[in-house]
Design a protein around this nucleic acid. Structure first.
Lengths: 224, 224
DNA sequence: GCTGATACCAAACAAACGTTAGGCCGGGCG
DNA sequence: CGCCCGGCCTAACGTTTGTTTGGTATCAGC
């Protein structure tokens, strides 16, 4: 009984069932391709080789399916980015950012459909599901904030850049790739390199030290 | 008679009906808030002060409603960006890009819901609707391509930057704001300025010519 | 005063939705 | 063996979907 009580205290089964995972796999693929509301439980069931009613032996509702899928997606990309950052060791923040960008992009496009689906449909999912999964997302976002803040502290990032905005711009540039990237057309490493290069050093030619024509920015006062 | 015949030769009514426009207004707001599939015709009708069946006196299907709304959205942002660019006159490409970014962001958040809805739901709409509206989108994207290409030709953009990627990154950073921006928290001009600054000059400190740290500005710089 | 067009409504349609109920089948365990 | 239970099925539930049909009120023009 103590063993039984202990096992009941943990997550329902000691190890997740295979069908359960396969349902989630199919759901992730369909959600990613077609969006949340466009995919019915019958679609998910058919893709999993089952009938709609049978899904309820593994999940209590469609919302539970999508919520679990969202969480797996975020945890996957989070884990990949953290792993890549820790493997990079003690390098300048500039290099870390490109490493994180590459890991994030790879997670989106090369690690199953969870991550891509998670990003694409998060904003289109019932509010209850969003609330249930926002904790995981926050954790991942805080990780990026910390990453950028470390870069700023070490002097690898400009002090006049709003780190929150920088992170949002980065996420936007990366996640928007879900709307246009088709595997095989461009390689992810090249995309990551270009994004890192643009974000860090800009698309404009390096500023000539004394040139006057470009110093004049709209709101930003000139230097002393 | 001749006038009537002439007016009948043009688009159905000489000037668009008010109800038709109001239906589109409501549809745009709902689509933007909730996504495409989550909004029913009954929702749109109720928001327009009508019943579902009455919508069919103005549109032949839900797809026609959403297609027309998508087109208006793209045309709106396109028009605003072009207007802003033409008003800017003959200035360096760096300034043009920030101008275009600001105009695009303002269109998304301050010109009704068409633009925001258009961007948010385009990827979640039936393929037939996407095909029917992709022409307008292509035209707008080509405009940006031309804008960036002009900057590259004039030497205002680095030659080793892929302009297609640059445009996609910019679109991503801007359009992703639909997922996080809430009016009133930050001002759009500030966001546009930061994005322009990062995209053009990078988030890393300027590569040290000789001096290393005095380049750093602190916050948003003191007022002049 | 009648005609026709316009703009809407009430009611219904078939289809699809998420979900539930009850039954069949097979393998592990007493 | 007999029993039971997980895993899936069929079939239906009530609701909601996009769409259609037929009718009504209003108003202009002959």
């Amino acid at each position: 009984m103590s063993a039984r009580a202990a096992s009941r205290a943990a997550v329902p089964p000691p190890e997740a069932k295979a069908s359960r995972r396969q349902i989630l796999d199919c759901a992730a693929r369909l959600f990613r391709e077609q969006g949340y509301a466009a995919v019915s439980l019958r679609d998910i069931a058919a893709a999993s080789g089952m009938k709609a009613g049978s899904l309820y032996h593994h999940f209590v509702s469609k919302e539970e399916i999508v919520a679990e899928m969202l969480n797996i997606g975020v945890q996957t990309v989070f884990g990949e980015v953290r792993r890549a950052i820790e493997a990079a060791g003690d390098v300048p923040a500039a290099h870390l950012i490109e490493t994180a960008v590459r890991a994030h992009l790879r997670s989106i496009f090369e690690f199953g459909d969870y991550t891509g689906a998670s990003i694409r449909i998060f904003g289109h999912v019932p509010a209850r599901v969003r609330d249930a999964t926002i904790g995981e997302r926050d954790a991942y976002e805080r990780y990026w904030v910390a990453l950028l803040a470390r870069g700023a502290r070490l002097g690898d990032l400009r002090g006049d850049i709003d780190l929150t905005l920088l992170r949002l711009f980065l996420f936007g540039a990366m996640n928007w790739a879900l709307e246009w990237y088709k595997p095989g057309r461009l390689d992810l490493d090249g995309i990551a390199r270009q994004l890192g290069e643009i974000i860090l050093h800009g698309a404009a030619p390096v500023r000539a030290p004394p040139a006057n024509r470009r110093v004049r920015r709209t709101g930003q006062t000139a230097k002393p």
